[in-house]
Design a protein around this nucleic acid. Structure first.
Lengths: 238, 238
DNA sequence: GTCATTATCGAACCTCGTTCTATCATCGAA
DNA sequence: TTCGATGATAGAACGAGGTTCGATAATGAC
């Protein structure tokens, strides 16, 4: 009963019954496809089994449960993100590089909102999450910072990326999945509600409602990111 | 069939059957208790009904579903947080005040990790979430910033608070709930794993592992928060 | 060929959110 | 007082989901 959970079957000489060609790879790819196509709620063990042309029980040969499945799926796609990020390193200023990497990561999460929720849960083990953390942090190694400042700095940057990408990922339950209502209109409703509020009770909300209406999510993220980077630049004495 | 969802029964002259004394208040309080005692997974409609000494169906008289229940529970406790926050306003420098408010909010979410996940989902309607947003933002109204800078500024601060509090909220599934393993030891295991990594492949992780081991979560949050605030101070020309 | 190992399959179980219908209590009108 | 209308309550039943389990098939070593 040595399950291939720690060492995928694909790595070993292929044997075993060939009825339906499974493997960690196939399971994970199918899971990612389901996630991409219809979001986190679409990833059910039964749907996954159906797509693989197999039974639910088979999946448990490759993963220990649904949590494990999601974790692996995340690590799976994070591998690609990692390649992108590492390709963009070392060209300029440390903070510029860090910025480019953060933006790349952000874009990836926006592309796949399901990444956000469970993101950074797998930093304990060696995997893409840890590599990502390492790559981000390595930029700060080039600056004149204390270890503590470096540690807090990366945490801050990751936090900004995740929280902003998460923000964008949340959709209204019914509509947007099929594109019936686009995000702009969705956000426009927020703005419309806000405008009806008493300006004396909500002066701030009124002062930014125009900014909010039709705002670009990416700008919002970049704004937050640059605040953090400005703080880091200050700390590094630049 | 006028459900009391928009106007709680408690506000009207008390009538109706008295078999089990329900009300929006009672339902929400019980829900919050369950959440506090054993986390988000403990809040099931059946458990809630049992605690109230009633049937599952009754709960649907007060809330439209589980999402609604959670949203209301959050708004319920956010009311208290709001009071704390508003009590701390207007004493000093705008950014100092903002900092104090952010820390208060952070503490509240750390106290109740279940707040974090669904936090900021109810800013569309008038409620405690929106008030919170307003109170935070009002501090920036006192600074010389453009509307866009204010908008991005509050988003950034909220993002830092939420993402850091969320980080702290995640526990290892089995142990910490009953206090068998405390958080320090839990984090220590991360550090132990990291120390076994190849220092050439993971220079950054190695450089901060001592910092990470036994680190104070709150310091980490404050570090990130101060980076953002430093950026804001810069923007405001202070 | 035999046998242990590797891998697959789906029925069955349990929990959960939600719906539906039956029932009870109270009040206002006839 | 009687009788609907409305306000509330209760729990059975449904369907979907994650997980467990035992049966079974394929493979490789001897």
């Amino acid at each position: 009963m040595t399950s291939p959970r720690t060492q995928p079957a694909a790595d070993r000489p292929r044997r075993g019954r060939q009825r339906a060609s499974h493997s960690s790879e196939a399971v994970l790819s199918a899971a990612v496809d389901l996630l991409d196509e219809a979001g986190e709620s679409a990833l059910t063990l039964r749907a996954l089994a159906a797509r693989l042309g197999t039974g639910v029980g088979s999946i448990y040969w490759y993963v220990s449960g649904k949590d494990d499945l999601i974790q692996r799926a995340i690590d799976h796609v994070l591998g690609g993100v990692l390649a992108d990020i590492e390709a963009r390193a070392g060209t300029g200023d440390a903070l510029d590089d860090l910025r480019v990497m953060a933006v790349t990561l952000f874009d990836a999460i926006v592309d796949r909102p399901w990444l956000g929720t469970h993101f950074m849960r797998g930093i304990d083990v060696e995997g893409s999450s840890l590599r990502l953390y390492e790559d981000l942090g390595r930029q700060l190694l080039r600056l004149d910072l204390t270890p503590r400042q470096r540690f807090h700095g990366v945490s801050a940057v990751v936090g900004v990326v995740v929280s902003n990408a998460l923000d964008m990922g949340q959709e209204p339950p019914p509509s947007v999945l099929d594109g019936a209502v686009d995000r702009d209109e969705f956000l426009g409703r927020y703005a419309a509600t806000w405008r009806t509020l008493d300006p004396d009770a909500y002066p701030f909300v009124h002062s930014i409602v125009d900014e909010f209406d039709g705002h670009d999510d990416k700008d919002q993220f970049l704004g937050a990111l640059d605040l953090t980077l400005a703080g880091l630049r200050l700390q590094a004495g630049l």
